[in-house]
Design a protein around this nucleic acid. Structure first.
Lengths: 160, 160
DNA sequence: TCGAATGATACCATTAATATATCATAAGGG
DNA sequence: CCCTTATGATATATTAATGGTATCATTCGA
């Protein structure tokens, strides 16, 4: 019952960073180290975002990614859509074979109402709004830079 | 991205039926046939509900299940909790190892807000309210009884 | 030309979802 | 009394989704 998946979450972090550092071309290696995200996984994520015109990429030495779209036009709902398709709380369960009276089914109506409200909020949340809601990078600098870029992913406490 | 899982959905159907037929002791076989739900799966579901004091069971010939709790006190959120634990849209993703600034993280706040609203609706939805929202069994009898109780589950069009 | 970077994509491991199967026990009916 | 129909408990199987890794090709700057 997870609303935001890991890939979406990782994407958000990387995008927020890029929004706060718009001039910089950020490489997967540096971003992965900074946020402790597995390199190859993050790489696939950013490549996907580039294919969707959200990022632009440059190859070769000194290459990496930067924003192509304005942060205020990158909706959380878009990102979820990129990685998992459009939000659909009723996928499968209410498919016609199982639930023949789709139109009237009150359970479906309830779920659809919840979904609609969730979608409104997800569309109102953008990279820009997330960055704005966050303390500025310079003000809260406690551990970020001194984290030894070691990606402690292995102990990956699931269900923690 | 499914809010209601199959087991919860199956449980809702069985419970709604029992709410509409309070005197009847319903066997897994009859319910499974009526709603085209796999027998053994439904059985495990109802056994779980019995363990949670939502149903009472009787064994042997003529046995089966009936409601123990009043339909208006069986919340949709409860059922989800029985099968999948309490609703938690932020499970795992925001665990501390990955998201160190849990308190301030604006993404987390957004998700928590969505979750809170969803929970309000899920708690407002009961077996009683679902039954009330549904046309009475006798009035809408179009296909229900003539469905040949054959459980067309195999073609199970996933992602449909 | 070397090395650091992405593009594309195939592969792998774990977990969750969705069942199915089985052994034991209980209870009613002939 | 035993057969059939039930549930109680639980182990096993199957499939898809999730999270992550590896690799080959290409690009580009020093």
């Amino acid at each position: 019952m997870n609303l935001i998946m890991r890939d979406t979450d990782y994407a958000v972090r990387a995008l927020c960073y890029m929004a706060r550092n718009p001039e910089q071309v950020a490489s997967v290696t540096s971003l992965g180290a900074r946020f402790a995200i597995p390199r190859q996984y993050l790489r696939r994520i950013l490549q996907t975002l580039a294919r969707h015109q959200i990022l632009e990429s440059s190859r070769g030495q000194g290459g990496g990614f930067k924003l192509r779209k304005d942060p205020s036009r990158i909706l959380l709902s878009d990102l979820m859509g990129v990685f998992h398709g459009a939000l659909d709380f009723t996928r499968c369960v209410f498919r016609s074979a199982v639930c023949p009276n789709q139109a009237s089914c009150p359970l479906r109506k309830t779920v659809k109402r919840i979904e609609k409200n969730a979608l409104l909020e997800l569309r109102a949340t953008t990279i820009a709004s997330l960055v704005a809601g966050q303390p500025d990078d310079k003000t809260r600098r406690k551990t970020p830079e001194k984290r030894p870029a070691k990606a402690r992913k292995e102990h990956s406490a699931r269900r923690g």
